[in-house]
Design a protein around this nucleic acid. Structure first.
Length: 551
DNA sequence: TTGCAGTCAATATC
DNA sequence: GATATTGACTGCAA
């Protein structure tokens, strides 16, 4: 019964849960002949069989290609892996191809919308599933992601950007074709990559895809082809639509609203996008400075005063926090890669966002103390802002509150921009509960960092390690980082951790590269910062461990 | 519940 | 037209 139902009314991939996808993955594998042998235990240990079949894909990859270069072109020259069912290069290729495959479908689907009657309504809900991932490819990629060694996200994006610009390829095309992401996401990803160790499995996927793409010798060509095809299709459409009465839009919509709804429901359904006025943003930023994690009450007040929906305020805080976090990472990277020029805060980076200041609060506190606190002061944001702020409506609202909540473990957070005497000293207390861990991110810094794994020798239970991140409290991570800093580069250990093959597969060279930034002053400052925080935390936990921090 | 990661998609900007 | 920004949404984890 289930099968019948599934076959006749499949749900779109994007709407399936992990579990719900399983049958499709199985089907896909079966279609590929990869599940040919063996009987699958019905339900039971759901993953058993699948994992098996999947692992079969891993092997080849593990052997990885022996490309010496990370350079797209060269890397492609993987040596065929002998015994595996599929040579590594093949697997890689097939993977990249798989990833790219989807495009055509997308194209066609776009063009030939009408002619999809065959599709049952269900699948229709996601017209032209742009998701380039078929069960199979997705699975493979996921596997790859899971096995992937630490990648230098910054380096990868940098190269991708180069290749794209050099070849005049757009983000949209690249995103939709190679990554299965929209232009905006691609732009964001390329401009502000997060460090590998801070990415979830899902978040790593695009980077793995990018790496694979870079490794594909025909990457550019393929994209170019796609571009051409797209253009052709576009022209075709154009022609036809011009000559014909109307475009093909209406049809699909019509069907949905067939049930007596008014003619133009489609548009009505869309909520207009909220655009915050500069003053509103300012106010929110000021509020953020005082309390990155405002209480519901504060949010309410802010919303009221700014005449916004509370959800908008909430969203704003969420977005702001996470974006700032990334911003910091970039700065780090840049500062590190550039001549560490002392506390050179990459002005550029900081430029527009208030972020860091508060953001970094937690950490910057110390940092500021020692150095160019300016970082915080920076733009409007910093204390400065706070200072001047005085007037903002938000201000008013937030301030008081702070005090109330103050009773938190003011401890760690302490961040108040330390040195920088901030007017809202009091407020600071109210600060972040868990100090926005974000800022610290830096500790781990750029690039592939020393992740705990590093510390853990070869044993490299990578898997474990990789999984670690989540658990790794901020401290944890830091911890690792720091230590590693004491030790030499993590790269070495890292390498050891994983089958070298894999590393080459992903073009590790650079991955290792970015690490040196470790010595940069800025990093040290942050480290020191973290150190103190950690120390306090440890104390708090009455777990006095004589850890020797070397900063 | 709350916070976050990852995205989408509408807009803004270049 | 391409790219950047950003409010909102989804899913997950603690």
């Amino acid at each position: 019964g289930s099968v019948s139902d599934m076959l006749s009314r499949p749900k779109p991939w994007s709407k399936l849960t992990q579990k719900g996808r399983e049958p499709f993955i199985r089907m896909q594998l079966w279609l590929n002949g990869e599940l040919g042998q063996g009987v699958l235990p019905v339900q039971g240990q759901q993953q058993g069989p699948v994992l098996h079949s999947v692992t079969s894909l891993q092997d080849p990859l593990q052997q990885g290609c022996v490309s010496s270069e990370s350079t797209p072109k060269t890397s492609a020259s993987c040596s065929p892996a002998p015994e595996s069912p599929m040579s590594s290069s093949e697997s890689v290729k097939s993977l990249t191809e798989l990833v790219q495959q989807p495009c055509p479908p997308i194209e066609t689907s776009k063009d030939s919308k009408p002619p999809e009657p065959s599709d049952p309504p269900a699948s229709d809900s996601q017209p032209a599933t742009p998701l380039p991932l078929s069960g199979h490819s997705a699975l493979s990629i996921q596997e790859l992601v899971a096995m992937s060694p630490e990648l230098d996200t910054y380096g990868i994006t940098k190269r991708v950007k180069e290749v794209l610009t050099d070849n005049n390829l757009g983000q949209r095309l690249f995103g939709e074709t190679i990554l299965g992401l929209t232009q905006g996401s691609v732009s964001d990803l390329l401009a502000r990559p997060k460090p590998w160790h801070k990415l979830s499995l899902k978040g790593r996927e695009p980077f793995v895809r990018m790496q694979l793409w870079l490794n594909d010798p025909n990457n550019v060509e393929k994209l170019m082809d796609m571009k051409r095809m797209e253009k052709k299709a576009y022209m075709k459409r154009r022609h036809s639509s011009v000559s014909d009465s109307q475009p093909c839009e209406p049809p699909s919509v019509g069907i949905d609203y067939s049930q007596g709804a008014s003619p133009q429901p489609q548009h009505q359904l869309k909520k207009p996008r909220v655009v915050l006025a500069p003053e509103e943003k300012e106010a929110l930023k000021r509020a953020y400075q005082q309390k990155p994690y405002p209480s519901p009450k504060t949010i309410e007040e802010l919303a009221t005063q700014l005449n916004l929906k509370t959800s908008t305020v909430i969203n704003w805080f969420h977005n702001y926090r996470s974006r700032i976090r990334r911003e910091l990472f970039i700065e780090e990277i840049q500062a590190g890669s550039q001549g560490q020029a002392g506390a050179s805060d990459s002005p550029s980076a900081r430029s527009g966002r208030a972020a860091p200041s508060s953001e970094g609060d937690s950490c910057d506190g110390v940092e500021a103390a020692e150095g160019p606190g300016p970082a915080d002061a920076e733009e409007s944001g910093g204390p400065a802002a706070a200072a001047k702020s005085q007037g903002g409506p938000a201000e008013a609202a937030a301030a008081p509150e702070e005090r109330e909540e103050a009773p938190r473990p003011a401890e760690k957070a302490e961040p108040p921009p330390s040195g920088t005497p901030v007017p809202d000293a009091a407020a600071d207390e109210g600060r972040p509960r868990a100090p926005p861990p974000p800022p610290e991110g830096p500790a781990d810094g750029p690039g592939p960092v020393p992740n705990p794994a590093a510390a853990a020798p070869a044993a490299g239970e990578d898997a474990a390690t990789s999984a670690a991140p989540p658990g790794e409290g901020p401290c944890r991570a830091r911890d690792g980082a720091d230590r590693s800093s004491a030790l030499p580069s993590t790269s070495a250990p890292a390498a050891a951790r994983r089958p070298s093959s894999l590393q080459s597969l992903f073009g590790l060279p650079e991955a290792a590269g970015a690490r040196d930034s470790r010595d940069n002053p800025l990093r040290k400052k942050k480290a020191a910062n973290l150190n103190s925080i950690i120390h306090r935390l440890e104390k708090a936990a009455s777990r006095e461990e004589p850890i020797e921090w070397e900063f």
